[in-house]
Amino acid sequence: MIDPARPVLDIRAVCKTYPGGVEAVRRVSLQVARGELLALAGESGCGKTTVLKMINRLEDASGGSIFYEGEDIAGRDPVALRREIGWVMQGDGLFPHLTVRENVAIIPRLLGWTAGEISNRVIEMLELVQLPVNAYGDRYPAELSGGQRQRVGFARALAGRPDLLLMDEPFSALDPITRDSLQQEFRSLQAELGFSAVMVTHDMAEALIMADRIAVMADGEIVQHGTPSDLLANPASDYVSGLLETPRRQMRAIRELGA
């Protein structure tokens, strides 16, 4: 059924024009291969979050089309589509009135799994994000640290076994040490489970460290698209160089200290 060679996600010339004529996204085309992490980078207001939200139809495209697992999403029920695609957001987006266990169980429950399947999946997912269910399952989000909450956010998004995970600035609210360890953990989680991911970030260093490929956006368009080393070797414009300047300067400074 699933062709491993076919991209999980195929975005073809999508546009988003808001009433009043503001063009947030202009003819963006992207593909995401199986198991790949694509970063959408750029300054705020460049349209990267809008692209992300069009993938699970939180926003509908004004033009172009998006294929998920070979199927045009325009013909799909948005709610069913969203249950198949994982969603992680800035902060954590956990439901404060539900326990950790209930937050993680919510998508399997919506998908109609049996109680036994749900319970096993919750235990498995919480193990994976290193929050054993015995210690953490009955806590409420307010009783967890920021890093722990974000881990529960990942566990919730991945509990329904999605092929694709969408992430909107997932690490930006965390302190640097927690951020770093969670970034590492995320890559090993992805290697283990094999899902594909699209991550929106304004932090170029994060994109360089984590992503397989990076699409840099400005003014609703993709201005450069390639692997991290492509971007570092051949920035296509002053804008891209400017975005790369901060991580470069930090790298140089650290190197000088070590020398």
Binding site: N56, V79, G93, L94, F95, I107
Partner: peptide, 25 residues
């Protein structure tokens, strides 16, 4: 707004959002 968006983003219907998330909160 974040919690509302999370509820939409993970695939709750309008009715489910109202009964499971918004009214309890």
């Amino acid at each position: 707004p974040q919690i509302r968006e999370a509820a939409r983003g993970i695939g709750l219907t309008d009715r489910q959002r109202l009964w499971q998330i918004e009214l309890p909160l």
